[in-house]
Amino acid sequence: MHPSRVLPAGAAIDHAKVVFSNDHAASERVQDSIIEAMDRHGFGKASRFAVRLALAEGIANAFKHGHKHLPSSATITMEFAVNSSKVVVSIEDQGPGFRPEDVPDPTLEENVERTSGRGIMLIRAYMTSITHNAKGNRVEMVYTKPA
């Protein structure tokens, strides 16, 4: 892993550690890098769709919920590694953490009209595995290429 603040544009990168604040361009670039790496490693359209969605949800959760009470300059740290069999991504924010089990089930009748709370369930639905650290401010998501 080679830590860097921003990824060079257009470079073929299979793994990196990136630190960025709530900045659309930086966030887009790291997501694009991961999707491009998946393309190079033979992941199909459905796999790229799944990971693209999980990345968007994970990053949105970090800034929107994790950094709710922090200045917009606060950074998150993302690490990713892509090879021909799997994609591993971690997202760590500087917030106080949360307990995933405290997020109400958005598919229950009484919650279906809630306007938030679906990010984690979509990550769970689309990724092979999702784990949180004990503090709840770091999520690791793994996507395994379908056989």
Binding site: F49, A60, E113, R114, R118
Partner: peptide, 17 residues
């Protein structure tokens, strides 16, 4: 549209209401 996030779904719910 190729991709849509949960935040977009939340906005659709608000619009629907």
């Amino acid at each position: 549209v190729d991709h849509l996030s949960s935040a977009a779904l939340g906005t659709l719910i608000t619009i629907n209401n």
